[in-house]
């Protein structure tokens, strides 16, 4: 079965005065229909840029440099998101492609009622006022909110409720793909758990595919089917949640998983150093300055993302037989 979204060679960066600083470099990623794909990484690793790039919501000075993003829908139609014009994108957005933005607490317009903010896009996508309202109410039910919420202003709602409204809005047109960026960051743990449960419910009910961008390995462990570990604008490792959590291949993944606090009270072995900023990504493997298993080749050669096992990709010279042998 072909991937719902097939990202190939995607690069995005920041337009400077003379040159472009690459934030996301040459990313290849397949998103499978119906899965929840977690994209994890430290702050500044480019995962939000990736999410925004998928949504084609980059605003200057952010620029999409190259690559393709093929979205294949049920009816056999497929689009390269990179090539679409603004108006074509507008058609696609919300109907097939939804977005739950980072900082979604502030993503509702404070001066409009919830109803208007949920229905305006539905109406614009061709629904009648009445249909739009019933869709909105149905969507609210999915996230356990009462229809009354429609008549509230955002400031009258709690943070969790606002987050749910955003989720409801995002799923109100039953899109094929939902990109959720740092969905639960600002919420308390209880609300976080409820919302994640609701998200799974939505996936099951609507059959939607969800890309969940987060820095929280715990969240990924709870709900994701597969994980893409991002480091310095590249995919370091990709695989099923179980696979990666049990046997992380990439030293970075190992570090990330090692830094999750365990019940046993065992000392956490964290990652040393800080993630590089896009202005000074290291040469060769971008992880090499922090890598405990670094060897000479890592500094010169950039490792490619390669299949390491069934359903498992990693970009590390350790698993590159020839190179590793040289070392």
């Amino acid at each position: 079965m072909p991937a719902l979204l097939e990202i190939r060679g995607l690069s995005a960066g920041l337009q400077g005065r003379r040159s472009v600083t690459q934030v996301v470099s040459n990313v290849d990623l397949d998103v499978r229909s119906g899965e929840i794909l977690g994209v994890v990484g430290e702050s500044g690793c480019g995962k939000s840029t990736l999410a925004t790039a998928i949504m084609r919501l980059l605003v200057p000075p952010q620029v999409l440099q190259s690559g393709s993003m093929t979205l294949r829908l049920n009816k056999g139609s497929s689009y390269d998101l990179v090539k679409l014009s603004e108006s074509e994108l507008r058609e696609l957005r919300w109907r097939h492609l939804s977005y739950i933005p980072q900082g979604s607490m502030n993503s509702l317009n404070p001066v409009l009622r919830v109803e208007r903010q949920m229905t305006d896009t539905l109406i614009q996508h061709g629904l009648s006022d009445k249909e739009a309202r019933s869709r909105a109410i149905a969507a609210l039910e999915l996230v356990n909110l009462e229809p009354k919420i429609l008549y509230s202003y955002p400031h009258e709602l709690s943070g969790g409720m606002r987050q749910r409204v955003i989720i409801a809005a995002a799923v109100s047109m039953r899109p094929a793909l939902i990109v959720a960026d740092e969905l639960t960051t600002a919420l308390d743990v209880v609300t976080q758990r409820q919302i994640l449960q609701e998200l799974i419910g939505i996936r099951d009910e609507l059959g939607a595919t969800i890309i969940l961008i987060t820095h929280d390995m715990g969240v990924v462990a709870q709900i994701a089917d597969r994980v893409a570990v991002m480091y310095a604008g590249k995919i370091a490792e990709l695989g099923t949640v179980n696979g990666i959590f049990e046997t992380p291949l990439h030293p970075y993944s190992q570090g990330l998983i090692g830094s999750i606090p365990r019940e046993s009270g065992q000392r956490v072995e964290g990652l040393l150093g800080e993630a590089p900023s896009p202005w000074n990504y290291p040469t060769g493997c971008r992880f090499h300055p922090r890598c405990p298993k670094v060897f000479a080749h890592c500094r010169a050669q950039t490792p490619a993302l390669q299949v390491q096992a069934s359903d498992r990709w990693a970009a590390c010279h350790l698993y590159d037989a020839e190179v590793a042998a040289d070392a």
Binding site: L57, R90, R93, P101, S104, N106, N109, P110, H125
Partner: peptide, 25 residues
């Protein structure tokens, strides 16, 4: 503001965004 990005993500027309989300605020 975040709600403007969200409005764009919702696929609203530029005029609606200007009128309801940017200008009014």
């Amino acid at each position: 503001e975040d709600y403007l990005t969200f409005a764009r993500a919702k696929g609203l027309s530029p005029f609606t965004i200007l009128k309801d989300y940017a200008f009014r605020n």
